[in-house]
């Protein structure tokens, strides 16, 4: 099994709901707490497993905004695991999830240095390395209804931009998405072979307009808007 996330940059609106859900679930989860530094101070910051960054691709008039949520990619060549001197970092054989044994970590930061995706953050209050667990304490919890056995970020996403599943299984939803939408890896040239994939923006045409056609009058447009509003 190769569990991972597939994230659709076409539908992600950058609302950070996944960031909040992740923090909420995991701060009391397996690798918790996710310490906040000066939460009510001048410059609040803290440990996060999931961060969303926003980019502008290309220049006007062809520019497009892309939101890129990033968490651990659970790489197949997980160099964060090979560089770990204590054996605290490990990649699970059965499902490929990369975890940190908090009882063994000595906080040397080398795994964070070895990670190209910024997925590992040192908890300066606890002194150990923290990272995304793919909600290992949710996805296998048989006390939860089956539909809820998914990572917190996936369940909470209001635009369903995130999908979770087994990328080893060619018939899974995530594999189908990657196949049909040309899912890609971030920084493939480094050779880490990240499991998580991103779906690029759909290649759809711009909004169609007929050049030269006059706009309907303001009262016409107001009437059609009223019509729609009443029907709903």
């Amino acid at each position: 099994m190769k569990l991972g996330l597939v994230i659709d940059t076409d539908t992600c609106v950058g609302c950070h709901a996944c960031v909040v859900a992740c923090k909420q679930w995991n701060t009391s989860g397996t690798l918790g707490p996710l310490t906040d530094y000066q939460p009510y101070g001048e410059e609040p910051s803290g440990v996060a497993f999931n961060r969303v960054r926003t980019y502008e691709v290309d220049t006007y008039p062809n520019n497009k905004t892309i939101n890129m949520p990033m968490s651990c990619m659970h790489c197949e060549t997980a160099e964060c695991v090979t560089v770990c001197p204590t054996g605290a970092s490990f990649k699970r054989e059965e499902d490929g999830i990369v975890l940190v044994d908090q009882d063994k970590c000595m906080g040397c930061n080398l795994c964070a240095w070895a990670c190209p995706y910024g997925a590992r953050e040192l908890d300066e209050a606890v002194g150990t390395m923290k990272k995304c667990t793919l909600c290992v304490d949710r996805i296998y919890d048989e006390l939860l209804p089956e539909a809820d056995r998914q990572p917190a970020c996936v369940i909470t996403c209001p635009t369903s931009a995130r999908a979770f599943g087994d990328l080893d299984d060619p018939d899974s939803e995530v594999s189908r998405l990657v196949r049909e939408r040309n899912g890609y890896q971030s920084l493939p040239e480094l050779g880490y072979n990240p499991v998580n994939r991103y779906l690029p923006p759909r290649n759809k045409p711009h909004a169609e307009t007929t050049p030269g056609a006059p706009l309907p009058s303001l009262s016409e447009r107001f009437k059609s808007w009223i019509d729609k509003a009443i029907v709903r």
């Binding site: 001197p85 204590t86 054996g87 605290a88 009882d103 063994k104 970590c105 000595m106 906080g107 040397c108 930061n109 040192l122 300066e124 606890v126 002194g127 150990t128």
Partner: peptide, 8 residues
Amino acid sequence: ANPKNAWR
């Protein structure tokens, strides 16, 4: 950050 585990 957590030298008590350095022996590992």
